[in-house]
Design a protein around this nucleic acid. Structure first.
Length: 803
RNA sequence: GCGGGCGUGGCGAAAUUGGUAGACGCAAGGGACUUAAAAUCCCUCGGCCGCAAGGCCUUGCCGGUUCGAGCCCGGCCGCCCGCACCA
């Protein structure tokens, strides 16, 4: 799709930058190293070599002079430099945090790599571990990232909505409940966060996360609490496990006072359903109006007090004993709040708590800071040294890049950088004494968060030349899968803001227009008895049945899925190009489905595209040197078939242009099929006919060029075009030829189409009405009825209403 | 559970956003050419009735608004995606 757009825009006279590069760090290379013994770098560059060849073979019009891989030290040196700049500016922080830890592979796993609570590679149950990690403080920009979404008009709504939900802004109240009686050390009160301050009078307990400092401190002197916390931490972190987990708590020996109800004391629990990383890691529970709190209260016999009354309910009979009520209503059982609506009550509580100095209204975000430390080899080294005397010390900028050691041991799990015999031993940049390098590497999402800027401008000595980068950025058209909707696209937006503050860019938003395209998918084939997946080329399809080519054994045709090596539902680009040519493959992929949807790769489908390539070539071949015989700038008077062809040609120009502009490639292709048919059927051979035919061939060749560039060049040469078609200007539609003198109007009687009216294109309503009433179909279907009304929509339809 | 999207022939899909439903392609069937096959070309192709002209029905289901609904509104059913103990 990107290639079609690039070629089309170039033909329209734009200065087009269409680059390509490789996001090349990451686990797959390291896994391959563990499995095959080859070095990640060797494996990666070899694959790049292969993929570059495949892309070139598909005829992608790419500026290869700008190519790079993110694992090139010439690229990541700038990443290290920017990290140090971010550190200086306070965009980065080192702190302890919980991670998913795979005890077998001995590495941190991303959430996406934890499947049903187990490591995706090792299958071992994942543990929660607290480690010191580097964080990019994306939450500092949460509000800006959220606000700016509204202005990203070139982005699909669903992606913007997903980011909005991911950032998850909520407004509520942060407040402190005072302890009564026994108190934990160094605290007078417990700070909680709530989005439902209106239900404060329904509070019957407080609870903290197992990771909350209060819980941890108490666990140090109480084995029961320690055991409870350990149990919570051992519980699966998968979504499924979380959903099924029973609400459980551990009663602490503390109580807090209700701020507005004299004498009401709330017990304090450690509870397994409280998240430390949201709000303050502590809540008040209102069982009457929250499902989780209700479950918890039912289990521990706590009060369930209704305080929100739904419209139409009677306060004397309304009960939340069985089910909590979470909807809107009016407040009751709540002293000074009684009678208020939910929103007014929220504002009133916040006002009073603020007045008493016990808390404040705040906004909260679901978004968490971006942990970027990975205990892996194949990533960009974090340019930091840990010194016993000086602490955390940045590597001096003139000593960058910190490169990966060429030799490393991949034979066992864990971080090869950490166990490398010499690599981590360096002298402290500050005091010069022996110190240790940071052995973590960056999350690979950092690599992909700024590559577009490097494509635009790639000086050797700094990340970008800002002026050059500004000429190109923001990216006019970004194309990618919807799977990037949150992570990559959010990180890149954030990173651009950081880069802007460091002076490397002047845009906040890196991608002006975003299109989320579908994937090429393929049916899966499996030999159930042998228990193995089969490549499509090893399967013989005959109507409903499928068999193995080698043994003839029956084959089960499975789901149509994203192509993956493990299920072997892949087709090698080389083989496609060999069998059908790159153009047929390009044409088919674009023709079969709307571009945002997946396209199923089928042999029959490519064959259809292949036939079309042949038909176009036949037409060009039959029109050899047609352009040399006429002057396209001097259109003769035409009528009859020649005029019809010219109209079809100019209609196609207008239609295809509009379709490409709006990413409707499948429709553009449908139009091109029609144009090909029109050209092939055209037979007139007089002067006007020769002109119309030459014009049609010239236009057709230029219109197909973005889709089938190789074919287009051959056709261009055959019909006698000057130079290369890729240098020829995009055709312009002649507006006069888009208008018709006579149009066909559907004629309805009582809303059902009964006939067609042939009317002058410029006929007014009265004239059309007269024509309609004279039509025999009206006489027939309105027979015995009175004509009540005639609705004329010029250029569209006529409807005669009779009853 | 919350949020979003989508349901149209045997299949992939169109429908100028309220105006002839099924463009275009795939598959299938029939025919021409050929000794034969491939390729190519022509025809048919949502369902029912009819020799035909033509008629009736049809966009997941039920109802509504409208001269007119695949499109708008209400209620169901089904599928897909995102988030998910977020207080």
């Amino acid at each position: 799709m990107g290639d079609v757009v690039a070629r089309y825009k170039r033909a329209r006279g734009y200065n087009v930058l269409h680059p390509m590069g490789w996001d090349a760090f990451g686990m797959p290379a390291e896994n391959a190293a563990m499995q095959t013994g080859s070095h990640p770098a060797e494996w990666t560059y070899k694959n790049i070599e292969i993929m570059r060849g495949q892309l070139k073979r598909m005829g992608l019009a790419i500026d290869w002079s700008r190519e790079f891989a993110t694992c090139d030290p010439e690229y990541y040196v700038h990443e290290q430099r920017m990290f140090l700049e971010f550190l200086e500016k306070g965009f980065v922080e080192r702190r302890r945090s919980f991670v998913n830890w795979d005890p077998v592979d001995q590495t941190v796993l991303a959430n996406e790599q934890v499947i049903d609570g187990k490591g995706w590679r090792s299958g071992a149950p994942v543990e929660r571990r607290e480690l010191s990690q580097w964080f990019l403080k994306i939450t500092d920009r949460a509000d800006d990232l959220l606000e700016a979404l509204d202005r990203l008009e070139g982005w699909p709504d669903n992606v913007r909505l997903m980011q909005k939900n991911w950032i998850g802004k909520s407004s509520g109240l942060k407040m402190t409940f005072r302890y009564v009686g026994e108190k934990p050390a160094d605290a007078d009160g417990l700070e909680i966060y709530t989005t439902r301050p209106d239900t404060l009078f329904g509070a019957s307990f407080c609870a903290v996360s197992p990771d909350h400092p209060l819980a941890k401190a108490y666990a140090e002197k109480d084995e029961g609490a320690a055991a409870f916390i350990a149990e919570c931490q051992a519980a699966g972190t998968s979504e499924e496990a979380i959903e099924r987990a029973e609400k459980k708590g551990f009663r602490l020996p503390y109580e807090v006072a209700h701020p507005f109800v004299e004498g009401r004391r709330l017990p304090v629990f450690i509870a397994n359903f409280i998240l430390m990383h949201y709000g303050t890691g502590a809540i008040f529970g209102c069982p009457g109006h929250d499902q989780r709190d209700h479950d918890f209260a039912a289990k521990y016999g706590l009060d369930i007090i209704p305080v929100v009354l739904p419209a139409g309910e009677d306060a004397r009979t309304f009960s939340v004993a069985e089910e909590p009520y979470v909807g809107p209503g009016s407040i009751f059982n709540s002293g000074f709040l009684d009678g208020m609506g939910v929103e007014d009550a929220k504002a009133e509580i916040i006002r009073r708590i603020e007045e008493r100095g016990e808390g404040e209204g705040t906004t909260n975000y679901r978004l968490r800071d971006w942990g970027v430390s990975r205990q892996r080899y194949w990533g960009c080294p974090i340019p930091i040294v840990h010194c016993e005397t000086c602490g955390v010390v940045p590597v001096l900028k003139d000593q960058l890049p910190v490169t990966l050691p060429g030799e490393a041991d991949f034979s066992e799990p864990g971080n090869p950088l950490d166990r490398h015999p010499t690599w981590k031993h360096v002298n402290c940049p500050a005091c010069g004494r022996p110190a240790l390098r940071e052995t973590d590497t960056f999350d690979t999402f950092i690599d992909s968060s700024w590559y577009f800027a490097r494509f635009a401008s790639a000086p050797e000595d700094r990340p970008t030349d800002p002026e050059t980068a500004d000429y190109w950025l923001p990216v006019d058209q970004y194309i990618g899968g919807v799977e990037h909707a949150i992570l990559h696209l959010l990180y890149a937006r954030y990173y651009s803001r950081n880069m802007k503050e460091c002076g490397w860019l002047s845009v906040d938003e890196p991608f002006a227009n975003l299109f989320t395209q579908g994937m090429v998918v393929h049916a899966t084939y499996r030999d159930e008895t042998a228990g193995e997946w089969l490549f499509p080329e090893d399967v013989k399809l005959d109507g409903e049945t499928a068999t193995r080519r080698d043994t003839g054994a029956p084959v089960t045709v499975g789901a149509i899925e994203k192509m993956s090596k493990s299920k072997k539902n892949v087709v090698a680009p080389e083989e496609i190009a060999e069998a059908y040519g790159a153009d047929a493959a390009r044409w088919f992929m674009l023709s079969d489905s709307p571009p945002e949807r997946d396209v199923e790769w089928t042999a029959a489908g490519v064959e259809g595209a292949w036939r079309l390539v042949g038909r176009i070539w036949d037409a060009a071949d039959a029109g050899r040197d047609a352009l040399k015989a006429v002057d396209l700038a001097k259109a003769p008077e035409t009528d009859g078939p020649a005029l019809d062809l010219r109209r079809a040609v100019h209609g196609a120009v207008a239609g295809v242009t509009d379709d490409i502009e709006h990413f409707r490639f499948n429709k553009a292709i449908a139009r091109l099929y029609e144009l090909v048919t029109a050209v092939r059927k055209f037979e007139t051979s007089d002067d006007a006919g020769a002109f119309a035919r030459a014009e049609a061939l010239s236009v057709l060749t230029r219109l197909i060029a973005p889709f089938t560039p190789h074919l287009a060049e051959e056709c261009w040469e055959a019909i006698g075009g000057e130079g290369l078609v890729c240098d020829a200007p995009w055709p312009e539609a002649d507006k006069a030829l888009l208008q018709k003198d006579v149009i066909l109007l559907p004629l309805q009687v009582n809303g059902k189409t009964r006939s067609q009216l042939e009317a002058p294109a410029d006929a007014d309503k009265d004239a059309i009405e007269k024509l309609a009433l004279a039509d025999p179909a009206v006489a027939r279907f309105a027979e015995g009825k009175t004509i009540r009304k005639v609705i004329v929509v010029p250029g569209r339809i006529v409807n005669v209403v009779a009853s």
